[in-house]
Amino acid sequence: MDNHKNSLTDISYFPGCSLATSAKENNLSLLNLCRRLGFNPVELDDWNCCGSSSAHSIRSELADDLAARNLFLAPAGRPLLVACPSCMLRLRHMYIHLRDDEAARGYYEDKWNRSFDPNLNILHFFELLPEANLPNLAKDREHSLNGIRFVPYYGCMLARPPVMSREKNYYGLMEKILSSLGAEPLLWGYASRCCGTFLSVARPDVVRPMVNNIALGAKETGADCIVTACAMCHLNLEIRCDLREPVPIFHFSELLSLALGEDDHKGWFSRHIVDPEPLLRSKGLI
C-alpha cells in the first residue's frame, strides 16, 4: 500500500465551494478516482471561491481578483486539477486573460509580489480519463456497471464564451468512458440544457419546469438515471424536480469510482436527496 502511495504523482487540486460542502460525495468519489488513476490531489493551499456567478454578474473586477488569487496560489510545475465546471470556466477564463494581457498580469504581480505562471496547466478532471485505460483498472471489466442505462447530462459545461470556443471540448466523454465500463448511454435532447443554476434560489418558478422537463426527457428514453459532471447541476436536478417518481442523479465520479470497485460509497449515496440505492441494488452494483 505504501509503495502504491509513493508512486502517486502530486497534482494541485481546487475543490471549489460546492465540492467542499454540499457535494462532498462528489469530492470523496473524485479523490478516490484520482488515486486509482495514479494521482495524489494536493488541495490548493488557502484557495478561495472562484467568484461563482454572482461576482461576474455584479462586480467584474471582483470576479477577476477572486479567480486571479487562486491562480497565483498554484505552485509552479504542477497541473491544477479543477472539479467543478463553473470554477473551471472562471479560472481558465482568467488564466487566458492574464496570459494574454501584460498590464493585467503586471497589476497582480505587483500587488502580490509573486509571478504569474504562464505555463500553468489547468485541468478539468475529464482530462485525466482518456489516457487512463479504465476498463483495465475495473475489477470486472464489461460487467462493472452491469448495463445501467443512463443519459449524460453536461448542462452548460460544454458552452463557453467566444474567447474560449477553441478550447478542448468534452462532448461524448461521459458516454464513451461509462460504456467502456459496462453502462449503456442513451441519446436524448437535454444533454446540454442549462440546469437553471442560481435562479433555483431566486426564481424557483422558472427553474422547476425546466428541471422537470429534463427529468421527463430522461424518463422518456427509458433511462435508469441521469449522470452529471457538475455539482450545481446535481443539486438543482435533485431539489427542483417535483415529479412523483424522480430520476436518480449520479455524479460522474461516483459511477466511475463504483465501477473501479471502490467500496466506501455508503457516505456518497446517503447524501443524495433522490435515493439511488434501490436502483444500484437492483443492478447488483452495491
Binding site: S22, S57, L66
Partner: peptide, 24 residues
C-alpha cells in the same frame, strides 16, 4: 426588475467577503 436575483448575488458576495468561500 428582479430584486430577488440581485439580493441573492449580494448575499453570495457577502459570504465571500466574510469567509472567502460561499457558506450556503
Amino acid at each position: 426588475a428582479e430584486p430577488d436575483i440581485l439580493n441573492f448575488h449580494k448575499e453570495v458576495l457577502h459570504s465571500i467577503e466574510h469567509y472567502g468561500r460561499t457558506h450556503k
